[in-house]
């Protein structure tokens, strides 16, 4: 199997892992967002709790959860270790004068930093909700479902959490403004006819997804 391990330990192979896991995580964002939109329903969390109960106990979802953890794991490990490797390739002696801002965008150069903010958010986020739901006994609502909605209400009373969640969405926004179309470039899916559409969809996707996620803590803090 050495040719396989060689392929995926080469610089291009590792990039391919970044791109595939990155797009997979984008698909996860869609599922996560569509489910969470039920938070905006004016039913005091009945639908959201039912959805959350389903996500927590359905065997298919639980299996996909393992894939998701692997996806995040590979993306984060490869992303950070490539960033360190690239830093070493740049060398110890930097330029005295370097106007890199004239040839590239800030967010495209800041993927590791933006990703690290998302990672920090992710840890806090898992602690806030996933940890409580999976590992502690949460009170149940009138339908006998675990009251995840109450957890959300409670967390977003804290302005620090609200601020962190919103900042993290900005980080994710800029991560994806570069990342979405970058993944297509990495996979070689570039064509003069279709690449402009990929770029356009990437921008739209990033803005809509991140704005909708950021709206949740803001809505709960100010209107609930």
């Amino acid at each position: 199997m050495s040719w396989i391990s060689k392929t995926f330990s080469s610089s291009i192979g590792r990039k391919i892992i970044m791109a595939i896991t990155g797009l997979f995580l984008c698909s996860f964002l869609v599922v996560h967002l569509v489910g969470n939109l039920q938070l905006f329903k004016a039913d005091n969390g009945v639908a959201f709790n039912a959805y959350s109960e389903f996500m927590g106990h359905n065997p298919i979802i639980r299996t996909l959860e393992i894939v998701l953890v692997l996806g995040f794991g590979f993306h984060i490990y490869e992303g950070l270790s490539l960033a360190i490797k690239n830093r070493a390739a740049r060398g110890a002696q930097g330029y005295v004068s370097n106007h890199i801002e004239q040839n590239s965008s800030w967010h495209s150069r800041s993927m590791a930093m933006l990703g690290s903010i998302v990672l920090f958010f992710l840890i806090v986020h898992l602690y806030n909700f996933f940890g409580s739901l999976r590992f502690t006994d949460v009170p149940r609502d009138a339908n006998g479902n675990e009251d995840a909605y109450a957890l959300v209400l409670d967390a977003f009373r804290n302005p620090l959490y609200v601020a962190l969640y919103v900042v993290a969405q900005f980080a994710l926004l800029y991560h994806l403004l570069h990342g979405f179309s970058s993944a297509f470039q990495t996979l070689g899916l570039v064509h003069r006819k279709y690449t402009p559409a990929v770029k356009f969809i990437g921008y739209g996707f990033s803005i809509v997804v991140c704005a909708a996620f950021a709206a949740m803590p803001i809505y709960f803090y100010f209107f609930k």
Binding site: S11, K15, K85, A89, R109
Partner: peptide
């Protein structure tokens, strides 16, 4: 040779 990996920055 120790070159870095591309992150599609475009510089």
């Amino acid at each position: 040779e120790g070159f870095g990996a591309c992150t599609n920055i475009g510089s």
